[in-house]
Design a binder for these strands. Structure first.
Lengths: 338, 338
DNA sequence: CCTGGTTTCGGAAACGTTTTCGGCAGGATG
DNA sequence: CATCCTGCCGAAAACGTTTCCGAAACCAGG
């Protein structure tokens, strides 16, 4: 159907070798024949067949974006989408094709990481959404195809990652709470299978310690990043520590749930209790009160991930890219009422 | 690097033909040799090379998801993401790989539709975000690779589409407004380059006509689906028709902008003016007041698009899949105050 | 024993590229 | 004149599959 390199060769009266040379800009070809071939290719509307090329070159100029647990969580919408956009934009800039793939822990056992890569002959992959106990994690580190992880702080020879400085982000958040006069501060964390949860917990602890406030494990509730666990979290926290005047949530979604529950309990936000989120999703700028939170540049995560991957593809060693957090202070936090 | 069919053949002492036969479950092979080969393949951890297979079979078991104007619009986030999820889920179910690709009108001129398909040897594509004046639209209809359009009501021999019954959705929306007692109803439409805009306008007109209300073209403002054009829309509409008590917006995002502007003008929503949206994006359930709107099942659009494409791939003729709208009445609409 | 039909298998071409190797001119050098 | 580059080009192998065609081997019927 399509016009091939052979057709051009025939029409130009040369061999396929010469056509290939002309098309790929090699030097050992007479300029006139090169131009003639190029003109003919143009006329015949020739388009190279990437599949055939991949087969012989053993690389596909394709990167895989593998997302674990995509549809499961409602929390990740805005977040995931922006990363996808960043990856896509940067990948097409660099002339890489992008194949989208999703898994979950059970599928990860069924189909191993390397099979996924080999099947499509992926040059590299960007992996997000994996949990600490996911099978892919070990596979990735000892695999032969380069990989960059998002929000998983691991590096290997052929493995980089990009993530926020989560400890610092969390620390800034509760530092702000403390600066506003709060001392009875609870935390609603994500599940323990997420790396970021542990780091954010550390940030919370460190901020308290700096301020000379005692850390009490009972003050942190482990949810699952979803709205309902935010509600559950405040019920749990407030019943045990009614004197709480501020709560730090490890996701905006949970913060929204927390606010909803606080309102249902007759508390005012932020007058009675301040709540701080994490992520700065789009919703944070639309709910009432507007959510104070720590901003994560998700789109940039996507572009950076591609950059890291391209460096890996060039043979450079794996590296870490941790981006600076900054606060977005809005309406859901306020000075503690005396 | 990877183990190939040839390695298996050597180890099993048969030809590659026989191995291929065993692997693909053909019948002209002795059951014992088939089982033996299968066992060996298993042992050697063989994975077929999809690239080589694509080359010879001239089909890739890959579908392209081409999105025009992805990052440009903030309006489309939730919408686009859900469609992507639907497409992805259904595609992996059907064992198709998904390559993500984005364009915009200018890129569409540079790289023709068919080139995109041929390069990756796509079996078919799902196309969304195209406008009435986009180059791809003509190309798609006369192209040789099957295509399903989202929200573009065109069918061809190898071209299906899935869309909401937009006329009906809009009609239901303003019928509801009319039923609430409103008669001074403005409309904030999308841009004229979107098919849905025209259909929604028809719905608006038809609902008015049914109710015996005069249709006045000056009462409809053409925006661009974005929040700011919603604000602009109410300024325009309210300055010309201060007696307006309800406005129907062709997107939730514009509705949110409209509400914001109305509040800024000192009007209460819905007491002074009702506003109705379109799309039912996630945000609609979080803003205050909660947005009344017409629901679109975006995720389902994605899955249905894949189903349509698969039927096209089987050789069936192009067809239309128009899904029934239904209203989600919440807080932003209310009976007209007497 | 011959014929004809199955069953089971292998050789080889094909898909569209890239790349290695070598060949043939022509000019420069000895 | 012999030798050696250098510039330009073609033949052919290779990538990993699938598939067409034919060939053994076996069996049944005559």
């Amino acid at each position: 159907m399509g016009v091939t390199i052979k057709d051009i060769a025939k029409r130009a009266g040369v061999s396929v070798t010469t056509v290939s040379r002309a098309l790929n800009g090699y030097k050992d070809i007479r300029p006139e024949t090169r131009d003639r071939i190029l003109r003919i290719a143009e006329e015949m509307n020739y388009r190279p067949n990437a599949v055939a090329r991949s087969l012989v070159m053993k690389q596909s100029r394709t990167i895989g974006l593998i997302i674990s647990g995509l549809t499961r969580s409602r929390a990740g919408h805005d977040l995931t989408f922006n990363i996808i956009c960043g990856v896509n934009d940067r990948a097409t800039e660099a002339e890489y094709d992008l194949v989208l793939s999703t898994t979950d822990p059970s599928r990860q056992e069924q189909v191993p990481y390397m099979e996924l890569c080999r099947r499509r002959q992926l040059d590299g992959v960007i992996l997000m959404g994996v949990r600490t106990d996911d099978p892919y994690l070990k596979e990735v580190l000892e695999a032969s195809v380069p990989c960059v992880l998002i929000d998983v702080p691991l590096v290997g020879e052929k493995c980089s990652h990009v993530t926020l400085d989560n400890e610092r982000g969390a620390r800034l958040a509760v530092q702000h709470l403390i600066a506003e006069g709060h001392r009875q501060i609870g935390m609603i964390n994500g599940h323990a299978q997420a790396f970021v949860s542990l780091e954010r917990l550390n940030g919370y602890r460190n901020a308290l310690k700096e301020a000379g406030i005692e850390y009490r494990p009972e003050r942190v509730f482990f949810g699952d990043f979803e709205e309902s666990s935010g509600q559950e979290g405040v019920r749990h926290l407030l019943s045990r520590f009614p004197e709480t005047t501020a709560v730090f949530c490890a996701s905006d979604t949970m913060a929204i749930g927390a606010i909803r529950e606080l309102k249902a309990m007759g508390k005012r936000v932020p007058e009675d209790v301040s709540v701080m989120g994490f992520d700065d999703i789009e919703l944070a700028s639309f709910v009432t009160p507007l959510l104070s939170t720590v901003h994560q540049p998700f789109y940039e995560f996507g572009t950076r991930a591609v950059d890291l991957l391209i460096r890996l593809l060039k043979g450079e060693l794996g590296t870490a890219d941790v981006v600076e957090p900054h606060l977005a202070i809005r309406e859901s936090t306020a000075p503690r009422c005396p």
